[in-house]
Amino acid sequence: MKRFKRKTTLFATALLGASIAALTLPAQAWEPTKPIEIIVPAGTGGGADQMARAVQGIITKHNLSKQSVVVINKSGGAGGEGFLDVKNSKGDDHKLIITLSNLFTTPLATGIPFSYKDLTPIAMMALDEFVLWVNASTPYQTAKDYMDAIKKAPDGQFKMGGTGSKQEDQIITVAIEKVIGKKMTYIPYKGGGAVAVQLVGGHVDSTVNNPIEAVAQWRAGSLRPLCVFDSKKLDYHEPIANGKAWDSIPTCKSAGLDVEYLMLRGFFAPPGISKEAVDYYVDLMKKVRETPEWKKLMDDGAYNQTFMSGKEYLDWVAKAEKTHEELMKSAGFLAAKSN
């Protein structure tokens, strides 16, 4: 009975992937034979961790894989620990790693030896947006108001809270400083949720939280989004707070703050795994993206839902690494050679 049921699910999933039939057929040739590990190069509760656990939940609930999925956090050394582990598991086709920007920033800032070139790219699941937030009780209604205030104040008076040091939040902060020509004081915290609460409590003046980290406080009326660091507005029209939807937030560029930044949420595998295994995982991730739970997650976090795999993905990553290297070089964030 159970066997029969499994066959029907297999059949159903094959149908699901029919749009990519030519690629899907060989993918069925490789199947995982033991639990699949998803390494999270960050602590529990962060954006990457949430996404990994959502993927785990979706795969389990919809029975997308015969084998169970295990999520393991390896956050040491700004995620370096997780990436080194995957890099050193050459040929292990039961291991995946979910990335955030520390794929680029950690090796540059700490000198821990790894690069995206050491890994096998699987797929880009989404891009995480960044929004400039201020406390709702402040008078700044637009990004321009806020920037003018910073320009008038002495260097370092305005405090920007962010996650981690020399990572995405601080990179954006430095980029903002470049545009407005004034220094801000960047204060690093451990997690995005804590940063948002610090802003609600008035301990910092602004943050560049991801939508999902700050949405609850926005809805409660304690935070105000000023602009989004993307080339276009967010594509979500459901009202969130005070009848305003994500798409009501203007782009920072239109507000005269020409800074763009998106964070990769994608999967990589260890080096040297077979083409068949890669195809299996690409296909698996496509199925994950078809589920209602995934759509819900995307809506909640107002993600940019770009999907890429294969060469397209690799090219994107290569370009992103170049951008990060330039940004970090100009910010003076590169690791000192003495280390």
């Binding site: 529990t44 961790d49 656990r53 999902i212 609850a216 809805r219 409660a220 304690s222 909640d300």
Partner: peptide, 17 residues
Amino acid sequence: AVLLGGLLIWGLQPGPL
């Protein structure tokens, strides 16, 4: 933190509301 992740997946948004 893990419970929090769970809340989000159930469509419950932790927070003041």
